[in-house]
Nucleic acid binder design. Structure first.
Lengths: 110, 110
DNA sequence: CAACTCTATCGCATTGTTGCGCAACTATGC
DNA sequence: GCATAGTTGCGCAACAATGCGATAGAGTTG
């Protein structure tokens, strides 16, 4: 796999490697929102939130539509939601592994 | 969505938010490998490579099988490969958007 | 079994990157 | 003019990536 491609992918993953940004994506998956709607959901300075949005816009996951003073955000690539499913898969698999360890399974024990 | 869940997901995304680790995953998708096989592919100190592997192991994406002094790595959750497809989707969508901008499309122009 | 090699990991120091709030700024609408 | 919506510059603290050297097991050979 090409080096450039790896970097491009890493950039996208990085944009999603934050609870805050994941929450934004999750919220936008339910429809268009403007900053002012998002702000109450995030206990942080609006400048910080704006920067998170910028990061998502930079990699092309989120797009904006300006309407007067407002700036409506929406998900441009809903396929990122399928990534969520996968992360759940990883989490569940890991949980199973932990369980096995506790209940005396064979996985990698000391 | 729960806060803990968001954090767990972000952890997984973060583990994949690095060209090096993406390359490792890509390589492991073609089969089990030992550190000594991976090393020649990565122009970095072996301790650094080891750390990247540790990170992938920590989130449960990669597992290890020890055989004597060697340590064979393998992909535990192949679904991460489907994430790759999605990143490609995002990259392509972004490329299309750029093209539109150049060719005089309507998207977000100044 | 002692000495040695080979494989992988750990501790530490250095360097670069990220997340954050604050305050200042721009732009829109009343 | 003044409130509302959002972005930008700055500095700080926390975190991540890296190399180097030391260390810990496994296997090998005398």
């Amino acid at each position: 796999m090409k080096d450039e491609e790896l970097k491009a992918r890493a950039r996208i993953m990085k944009a999603l490697a934050s609870p805050v940004r994941l929450k934004i994506v999750d919220e936008l998956s339910r429809g268009e929102r403007c900053m002012c709607e998002l702000q109450p959901m995030f206990p942080m300075n609006k400048s910080t939130l704006s920067r998170h949005l910028t990061e998502l816009k930079n990699v092309g996951i989120v797009g904006e539509r300006r309407d007067g003073a407002r700036c409506f955000l929406r998900l441009l690539t809903p396929c990122v939601l399928s990534m969520f499913d996968c992360t759940m898969g990883v989490i569940r698999a890991e949980a199973r592994r932990q369980t096995k360890l506790v209940s005396g399974g064979k996985a990698t024990e000391t």
